[in-house]
Design a protein around this nucleic acid. Structure first.
Length: 428
RNA sequence: GGAGACGUAUCGAAGUGGUCGCAACGAGCUUGACUCGAAAUCAAGUUGUCGGUUUACCCCGGCACGUGGGUUCGAAUCCCACCGUCUCCGCCA
């Protein structure tokens, strides 16, 4: 969602942005929305004038009745009746047009940062940097489920019976490792000055439709039967929903928050759930970070956010790289986005473990997140990023720390969270 | 889950259909006066949002009294639904 004033004053700027983002695809209806907006304001003016007339006439009726002039009052009532009829007509027209405007506005993407590479889809994302050397193992690395099974750490068969495909039981040291990673991630972020938050894991439909499109909602969200509640797909939903339609105190910014939650996703559509193991699943847990800040600070905090994730993985001795999302892979609300990918010694390539985004004011505008300044209320900028999402991250963990005998090393930073253990041994 | 009370601006709070009354009044905050300075006192100002006009300010108007509908010429006020808060009872980790 972009500012309609920008469209009014400089539609060419919007068109250029769309061309850059979608390249040769057809343009959303910028000209149409500019015209409709003009009509809408004319209607608004006429409606306001009519309402004014109605208010004035009605209060005269009150005075006439007080003076006992009933006949005159009756005549005035008829007049207001006519005005009301016209007001209804105008309102119907306004509603029709503004629904159309809103629909088009939702398809107009956010402005894209000048440094976002141009490309058609995720295959044209651009590597920015690598951290730690991506080493291959001197032995063959098995599929992650096999590693985990040898460690006595996973039971997918039972999960399929109790819950179906896309669920898991983690057991023993692997379950403990899962918790340890999250707890360490929490402390890691708290140490960097972020406020820890545990949000609601279910949210109402009005919040859901605020934070995502209808299609996304259908493809991702589980609904609670008989209640107006949905299971969250990420804590970002509750974390950002928290500030919906609020006016924040300027002094409270930036809000730097880190949240934990389980995440529930249907994973209908594009990739599906058929991938083996725990890469893509219906239920996982995630430590997230979000920032709500002033517009002039969002570039700075974007870099801070992704750096947090890189540092976190490096501290656990897992090689990662950063990848700039190209224009074609960038969601409409995003100004800029970067994936953090972890090294997979088995696949000998990197795979996504986190995603960092600056939405500038697009999300705030859609949700009504503002802050008070001396000159009036302005829309804040919002950013979000993954700290870590096990169990997906467990895949990178066991592959990178795997020994030839099947055991898995625990890096020093995690050892305190694992009762001092330095290694997870295979189950005899 | 049951019974009751309630939701008004930054906070407290009045307001049971129009005029007297521009959402009273009180507190807070801002500015000014007074003062060597402060307190006290006095005066003025102090919600958001959309549109018109505008470089901007100002000004004019519409809308908003939890949210959404309804009744009426006219709704903070009457009716309906929903959301939320509080008190008591019940149940419970």
């Amino acid at each position: 969602m972009i500012d309609i004033n920008i469209l009014r004053n400089n539609p060419e700027l919007v068109k250029e942005n769309i061309k850059r983002k979608f390249q040769d695809q057809k343009l959303p209806l910028v000209d149409e929305v500019v015209e409709l907006d003009k009509t809408l304001r004319l209607l608004k003016k006429e409606g306001d004038d009519k309402r004014r007339e109605k208010n004035e006439t009605s209060s005269q009726i009150g005075k006439l009745i007080a003076q006992g002039k009933k006949d005159e009052a009756e005549k005035m009532k008829a007049l207001v009746g006519k005005i009301n009829k016209r007001i209804t007509e105008i309102e119907d027209e306004e509603q029709k047009i503004s629904a159309r405007v809103k629909k088009i506005m939702l398809t107009i993407p956010n402005f894209v940062s000048a440094d976002v590479p141009v490309g058609k889809d995720d295959s044209e994302n651009v590597q920015l940097n690598t951290y730690l050397e991506a080493k291959e193992k001197p032995f063959e690395v098995p599929y992650h489920t096999e590693i985990l099974e040898k460690l006595g750490g996973i039971d997918l068969d039972s999960a399929r019976r109790t819950s179906g495909q896309g669920f898991y039981y983690l057991t023993g040291d692997i379950a403990r490792l899962h918790s340890a990673i999250l707890t360490y991630a929490r402390d890691f972020m708290i140490d960097r000055g972020y406020t820890y938050v545990i949000p609601p894991y279910m949210i109402r439909s009005d919040v859901v439709s605020g934070v995502m499109s209808f299609d996304e909602m259908d493809n991702m969200m589980y609904k609670i039967e008989g209640e107006d509640l949905y299971l969250i797909g990420t804590s970002e939903h509750s974390m950002i929903g928290r500030f919906m339609n609020t006016i924040l105190d300027e002094k409270s910014l930036p809000l730097k928050l880190t949240s934990y939650s389980p995440c529930f996703r249907k994973e209908k559509g594009a990739h599906g759930i058929e991938e083996r193991g725990i890469y893509r699943i219906h239920q996982f847990e995630k430590q997230e970070m979000i920032i709500v800040c002033k517009p002039e600070d969002s570039d700075k905090y974007y870099d801070e956010l992704w750096q947090n994730t890189v540092d976190f993985f490096v501290s656990m001795q897992i090689p990662v790289r950063t990848l700039a999302c190209c224009t074609g892979d960038l969601a409409d609300l995003k100004y800029k986005s970067l994936d953090v990918e972890a090294w997979s010694p088995r696949q000998k390539k990197y795979f996504e473990v986190g995603s960092c985004s600056n939405l500038t004011d697009a999300q705030a505008r859609r949700l009504g997140i503002r802050y008070k300044t001396e000159k009036g209320n302005v829309f804040a900028h919002t950013l979000n990023n993954t700290v870590v999402a096990p169990p997906r991250m467990i895949i990178a963990f066991v592959e990178n720390h795997l020994n030839a005998d099947g055991s898995v090393n625990i890096p020093p930073v995690l050892q305190p969270y694992m009762g001092g253990k330095t290694k997870i041994e295979i189950k005899k």
